[in-house]
Amino acid sequence: MRNDVRALYERLGPLQEKKGYPFNADVETVESLLEGLLVNKERYGYMSCPCRLAVGDRELDKDIICPCDYRAPDVEEYGACYCALYVSPAWNEGSLPRDTVPERRPIGRLPY
């Protein structure tokens, strides 16, 4: 794992777990998604969701800045956020089906 990714992993992991949102236990998936967050931080100046297309305008992208506005309802309903970066403890224990999480962002919110 790259140093900058590891630093993000070690900073975000405990912080978000305390809030009830542990990382996906699949470290490879988390590593790839954290890399995506750092790419977007470099591109836009903020960690826009790696699985959604940002437009580079913080105001228009604010609902998809990670952790996005949709993490809570997605983890509540599916046990995972849209990217599967953050999950519920039950999801990690394997006691939930691993369905594809559909896009919850309203079409009206899309700035493109």
């Binding site: 790839s32 998604l33 890399e35 995506g36 790419v39 699985c51 959604r52 990217c83 599967a84």
Partner: peptide, 8 residues
Amino acid sequence: LSTCGHCK
């Protein structure tokens, strides 16, 4: 998207 895990 090049950054998306599901896309990978």
